[in-house]
Write a protein that binds this DNA or RNA. Structure first.
Lengths: 123, 123
DNA sequence: ATTACTGTATTAACCACTTAATACAATAAT
DNA sequence: ATTATTGTATTAAGTGGTTAATACAGTAAT
C-alpha cells in the first residue's frame, strides 16, 4: 500500500480519505487495532501532527475509537461502517455522473463507455 | 453559472477545471472571445491574479489563445478540444472505477449501480 | 518501581495560496 | 492625439497546511 499523496490537496484530507477507504473496504476490519500515530505517520511519510489531525477527524466521524493510552481501533459498529460506505459510494457516483454530463456526454454514452471500460479491466 | 468554489483545494486549480469543462462542453465555443481577466475575476469573485494564473495554465495547455492587448479567445483547433475532452473523460472514469473497486464493489455491482442511478436521473 | 509506549499539546519556522494595491506597455476605440 | 482596455508584473500582507522539535500525562509491560 503506497500512500500515494499528491501535492494538489492538503495531505491530511488525503489521509482521511485513504484510511476511510481501508475501513469501508474491510482492509482494516471491525474492531481491529490501528498502529500508533507515530508508526502510521512514518509509514505514510508524513509528520505525526498531520497524521494525528487525520485520525482525529475519523474519530469525530465515529469510524475510529481512541483509547487514551493504548492506541486506537476501528469501531465495532458495523452499521457505522456500512453507512460510511454507502455515503462514499453515492458521493463518488453523483460527482462522476455530474461531471460527465457537464462535459456533454448523454446518459446512453456514459453507460456504454463504462461498460467498455469495465470489460476492459482485468478482473 | 455559479462558480462554486470550495476551500478544500487551491482556487486556481478549481478555476482551471471549471473553465476547461466549459470549453470541452462547448459552452465556450471554438474561437469565441473570453471576457477580460478582470471581468472573469469579478464574475468568479476572486482576485485578478488568481484568475490570471488559471488562464495562463489553460493557455499553456493550448486551449486558450492570448492576444496581448485584445484579450483571449478559445482555440480554433477542434482536435485540441476533442483531445482534452477525451483525456478528461478517461481520467474521470478510471479514478471513479478505481475508488469503487477499492471500496469493495465488484464489476457487476458497479454496472448495476450506475444503471440504476442513470435511470433515476431526470433527463 | 521502572521502562516503554500511547495520545496529545505547544511553539517556531517555512512555504504555497490568496488578496490588495498598484504600475507598466501595447493596442483598440474615440 | 487621447482615452480606455488589454495582459502582465511587482510588492506586501494575511492565512492555512506542513514539518520539526519537544514536552507531558496516562498506562501497559517488565
Amino acid at each position: 500500500m503506497p500512500w500515494e499523496l499528491k501535492s494538489d490537496r492538503p495531505i491530511y484530507t488525503q489521509l482521511i480519505e485513504y484510511i476511510e477507504l481501508m475501513i469501508v473496504s474491510g482492509v482494516y476490519p471491525l474492531g481491529s487495532k490501528l498502529p500508533s500515530v507515530r508508526d502510521m505517520a512514518q509509514e505514510a511519510a508524513v509528520n505525526p501532527n498531520t497524521m494525528q489531525r487525520a485520525l482525529a477527524k475519523l474519530e469525530e466521524d465515529g469510524l475510529i475509537i481512541t483509547h487514551r493510552t493504548s492506541g486506537r481501533s476501528i469501531t465495532e459498529d458495523e452499521s457505522m461502517v456500512a453507512k460510511a460506505k454507502t455515503k462514499l459510494a453515492q458521493q463518488q457516483i453523483s460527482e462522476f455522473l455530474e461531471k460527465m454530463q457537464l462535459m456533454g456526454f448523454d446518459q446512453q454514452e456514459i453507460l456504454t463507455i463504462i461498460d467498455n471500460m469495465v470489460k476492459g479491466m482485468k478482473k
